[in-house]
Design a protein around this nucleic acid. Structure first.
Lengths: 163, 163
DNA sequence: GGAATTCCGTTCGCATCCTAATTATAAAAT
DNA sequence: ATTTTATAATTAGGATGCGAACGGAATTCC
């Protein structure tokens, strides 16, 4: 049957284009990073957490969630998987029996260069056609957008679209 | 090739910082968009698909996947949910019995302005502190990054990190 | 014609994120 | 001291994405 294309102005597409670009870049970077990491039995999200732990070990799960910008539930599940794979371990806090602190195990520490090389290669491929100045510009703008969104999400989500 | 912005011997955190920023922006935008859309019983991913259909209806699922930059598996699941909610419907192709074409139903068409207003509000909040020129600059750079990644993922993933 | 290949959509299993509710513990208020 | 409130982590359940594998259908190649 002929495609009865519903006529539409170009507004919805152009408004959505920004969102698609942001999503594509984030997802394609994840895909590429996963390809590099798969031979080592790691995933991209796990590497974000491991890299954080390589910087500083022994933080609580709430702290890790804040540093990575995800929720505590997501941290819980990831630490589950990383612990099962023997990359990290949970240790109880001495003073507060509610909290658990996450520590790297030796097997993870020895793979440190794998993680940073994989991240570096993804960056290299992402920014291949960009000059150093353009990369700086891009990251600066992205940080500002992140700040805007952080503020927007901190307060109440104000207005809703009328029906 | 960027020679200065991402030095290979920087610590893992700065190498990862780019990845975190891209992920945060994409995820926060989704979160904000979901908040706007929840009263209407929609999710952000569904809106990306609906907006595409508002532009042009009756494409096959493979075509939709290509246009949205996701896989056919993801499209299949989303069309399942959208069909269950009576926003769209699958119709068999006349010539090729393998393919199914996705059409909007009237209930979706009538909500068109909801979708574009929600997307516009997210953009407005994302770019609140940016000038129009900066937004253009950002989107242009992001499109170039997307192109780089697309090319990187099109070919074989070349080198693996040594253990 | 017939066989091999390619293509479309689906189901399955997994990882990652979310919100809401639950459990356990700690801290503050009365 | 007891009650209330707040916090840490988990469980439960859903949405979104992926790859692998499958069946059905079309196409291509002898």
């Amino acid at each position: 049957m002929p495609d009865t294309a519903i006529a539409a102005n170009e507004d919805s597409q152009s408004e959505n284009e920004a969102g698609l670009v942001f999503q594509h870049v984030a997802r394609q970077r994840i895909k590429l990073l996963d390809a590099f990491l798969a031979p080592h039995g790691l995933t991209s999200a796990q590497v974000y957490l491991l890299n954080r732990l390589l910087q500083e070990d022994g933080r609580t799960q709430v702290e890790l969630a804040g540093q990575l910008g995800i929720g505590t539930v997501a941290v819980s599940g990831m630490v589950d998987r990383l612990e099962a794979a023997d990359w990290v371990e949970r240790r109880p806090d001495a003073k507060d029996r509610r909290t658990k602190r996450v520590f790297l195990k030796a097997s993870a520490t020895s793979k440190k260069h794998v993680l940073s090389e994989a991240a570096a290669q993804v960056n290299e491929m992402s920014f291949e056609t960009l000059s150093g100045a353009e990369v700086d510009q891009l990251l600066t703008l992205m940080r500002r957008v992140r700040g805007n969104l952080r503020e927007a999400l901190a307060g109440e989500v104000p207005t809703l679209v009328r029906d």
